[in-house]
Design a protein around this nucleic acid. Structure first.
Length: 130
RNA sequence: CGAGCAGGCUGCGCGGCCGCGGCGUACCCCGAGUACGACGAGGAAAGUCCGGGCAUCGCAGGGCAGGACGCCUGAUAACGUCAGGUGAAGGCGACUUCAAGGAAAGUGCAACAGAAAUAGACCGCCGCGCGAGCGGCAAGGGUGGAACGGCGAGGUAAGAGCUCACCGACGGGACGGUAACGCCCCGUGCCAUGUAAACCCCGUCCGAUGCAAGGUUGGGCUGUAUUCAUAUGGGUUGCCCGCCCGAGUACAGCCGCGAAUACCGCUUGAGCGUGCCGGUGACGGCACGCGUAGAUAAAUGACCGCGCUCGACAGAACCCGGCUUACAGGCCUGUCUCGAAGU
RNA sequence: GCAGAGAUUUCUGAGUGGUUUAAGGAGCACGAUUGGAAAUCGUGUGACGGGGGUGACUCGUCCGGAGGUUCGAAUCCUCUUCUCUGCG
């Protein structure tokens, strides 16, 4: 399943004005309900050179994609990372999932958390143990 | 073996699985669908410092400004690049570095110090004189970044290219070289410091703007504001001459998928590889082969396994040729250099 | 992406080749004035490093950074870092 990108400036300003904000350690998500599930990543020049910005975008897109399968309702999302020295996929994926659950966007918890999510969380816990 | 010098190559690899970008093929319920397939960032993609292509404007143009470059010859589409030479400086050497034209075309500037800064005599030396002083000199001292060439001998009252040898400078000539220049001979006692990355002179070159260039499609209605309407306006290259123009611009609202949008420009190009030929070389010619990103809120990532030297700088945005800057390492080449040991 | 401008002491800001000129203002410190303050007036005040009974003081370096031209550079030239502006 594909997820649409938000491209128009009008949509960005609308979401930023109307949408609800949810904060986590590594990023902020602004969201509002819509007809289709759409998302965008906001990475300005303050995050670093083009290599660094591209890497943040890739990590965030992947983090969104792997978590979006659990979504119950269709919404528009803006993903805004927090400026830092190091950016890791594990932290982004964990926080995106955390926000989805906290905002009760996921489907019924037992059914909604798919195998992928379980594998992911297992890997995370393993790493933390090490 | 050690230390160097010069040149070149490379820039983690393999497999599994999920995902991304445009392209091709097939299918359908024809939509920014699904499946399969091959392809998908760099040596600097960077800085935007030069040179071109391409595009629009100007193309009846003319002039003035302005800018860039600067030993010679060649290469090239072109260059501020490259190659080969010349000269100077550095290194024991292999080699390296150099914005390397003109200061008797002219103008400006040269603080402080110093007697004096392109001109001259403070201390001094010598002669005359009892002395005050007068005259001669520029060797020595001192100042300075720079003081009418250096050094030795002769000469002299003391000195001075005053005379001579050598070196340097300038002028002329012969020879070699396409040339920069080299080398030799003759002459002139010698004649104006530095700065042109100060103005400038000489020679060569340059129209302006840049793909957000520019082209196609770009509907209708209403309202508001503003510039100008024959010149004191706008456009045309920075300016002047000359030439052209009657409307132009901005904002808000409604219908509308939408206008910072859609499509084109957008990737086959001075292209890459191999071999042969010409050339010291940059490079050129011929033959054969290859098909090689094209996004636009902007495509390469996540996870797992294995190996090792544990992975640097870093992401195409119209396209090429260069320069400059950043960079973990690894590899290769040489009639190359120096040192040590051995033969 | 393309085009352009700038960086001077704690802050703001002159200076555009000459030896002491790193102006001027703000801020800060001290003093005068006041019963006490404000305002006013006067004096002083950059950083770093070295030397000093570590006292008075004195020497050197520094104009974003690194090279070059020049006798001499904040100023001229080249490279570089950072900041800002304009262009649909």
């Amino acid at each position: 399943m594909k997820y649409l990108r938000i491209k128009r400036k009008k949509d960005f300003t609308k979401i930023l004005r109307v949408g609800k904000r949810a904060h986590a350690e590594s990023l902020t998500i602004v969201w509002m309900p819509s007809d289709e599930t759409k998302f965008a990543v906001c990475v300005g020049k303050k995050y670093g050179k083009s290599v660094v910005r591209n890497r943040i975008k890739r990590l965030l897109r992947e983090a969104f994609r792997s978590n979006a399968e659990c979504l119950a309702i269709s919404c528009s999302f803006l993903l805004i990372p927090r400026a830092a020295k190091e950016y890791s996929y594990a932290a982004f994926a964990r926080d995106v999932g955390k926000i989805f659950r906290r905002e009760k966007l996921t489907a019924d918890r037992s059914a909604g958390v798919g195998e992928r999510e379980c594998v992911l969380s297992q890997n995370l816990s393993q790493k933390e143990d090490v």
